[in-house]
Simulated assay, not measured.
Amino acid sequence: MPREEVLDLLQKYVIPYRVTKRKGFRLKDFDPGDTGGLQMEKAEATELLQAGTAWLAEEQDMLYAQDRWSLLLVFQAMDAAGKDGTIKHVMSGVNPQGCQVFSFKQPSSEEIAHDFMWRYARRLPERGHIGIFNRSYYEEVLVVRVHPELLERQKLPQPLVSKRIWDERLADIAHFEEYAARQGTKILKFFLHVSRQEQEKRFMERLEQPEKNWKFSPSDVRERKFWDEYMHAFEEAIAATASKQAPWFVVPADNKWFSRLLVAAATVEAMVSLDLAYPKVDAAKKKELAAARLALSRER
């Protein structure tokens, strides 16, 4: 199938899950078990994903060579939604030299001493690179919002901790993304939307299968008590920061094969939209290359 047709097919499956308008967004309109009408065997899904990752690798090679644009992929989700596996499978073919992955854990004392965006802004991808945030600055309006005691540790002046702080932080994030986009950073944000039932199933697998025990943390179960609060926080965050230059993708995550295909499709589509190409060699450079070729030929 010609790549133009493949791209049209990718867009067909990506569009229903892309959120660029803030008005009217409701998380309940998205089904975590949705597969976009696709029905396929695991082998077929794997083959399709491999085709997508191969295409992504080609686009990344041109991104690195052109050295103009950068791409930031932001992953947010509840525990066990499959962020790590999605990143691993979708990015399996890219050159590690042009890719940077950051997993943001509990902030250090140095990071707490700065504004809430400081540690994330420092990790934005450089030109020609793909940056991946496994959790991101959105934690500051998700986990911190659900657990406001964490806000106390950030040492903000008390007059600034008002009822509007979450709206203010979301506005700051939206402005930050607008700024980054104007500097040549293409931003894609993925919310891996797993159902509460599927999360429970995956937690049980981690408990019952010895090779998966290391993945389990007692805090995972504690956080399930705040499920509704998290869903509200996610809905508010997506609705407040969705835009054309930094779209959200609400990725159904109950079926891992589909979530990986969707993330790969959205990423390939974004890369193609940049119209990447290898740098053209000008007359002066061609002259240098000819001289180098002549020098090498004389060594024979």
Rank of each mutant, 00 (worst) to 15 (best):
A242K: 04
D79F: 09
F116G: 02
R206P: 01
E229A: 13
K225L: 13
L38M: 13
N213A: 14
A283K: 10
Q106K: 15
T241V: 04
S109I: 06
F234Y: 15
Y179C: 08
H114L: 01
Q209R: 14
H147K: 15
W69H: 15
Y137E: 12
V272C: 08
E177V: 06
D79V: 06
R18Q: 14
A292H: 07
G52R: 06
G24Y: 04
A65N: 02
I112R: 06
Q154F: 13
V146E: 07
A65W: 02
W214I: 07
H232G: 04
S273P: 01
L151R: 14
D172W: 08
K28A: 15
E149W: 01
A233R: 05
K83M: 03
L10D: 02
L7R: 14
I238C: 08
K280Q: 14
T267W: 07
A242Q: 06
Q154R: 15
G33Y: 08
E288A: 09
A270S: 13
F133L: 05
V146Q: 06
D67A: 14
S273D: 14
V74T: 07
K186S: 12
Y64T: 13
A240C: 03
A291N: 10
E198F: 02
L142N: 09
Y179Q: 13
Q197I: 06
E269K: 11
S273V: 01
E177D: 11
Q106M: 10
T35H: 04
S70H: 05
M204H: 12
H114Y: 05
I112L: 15
F226G: 00
A277Y: 12
R3D: 14
A181H: 12
D84S: 12
S219Q: 11
V101Q: 07
T267K: 09
P247R: 03
H129L: 11
V272S: 12
V268N: 14
E208Y: 02
D61T: 11
L274W: 11
S243D: 04
K83F: 02
Y230A: 06
A51F: 11
G24T: 05
Y179V: 14
V94Y: 00
R145K: 12
H89C: 01
F191V: 01
T53N: 07
A181P: 07
Q39Y: 10
L156T: 00
F203V: 10
F104G: 12
D61G: 08
A290H: 10
F191Y: 15
L274D: 03
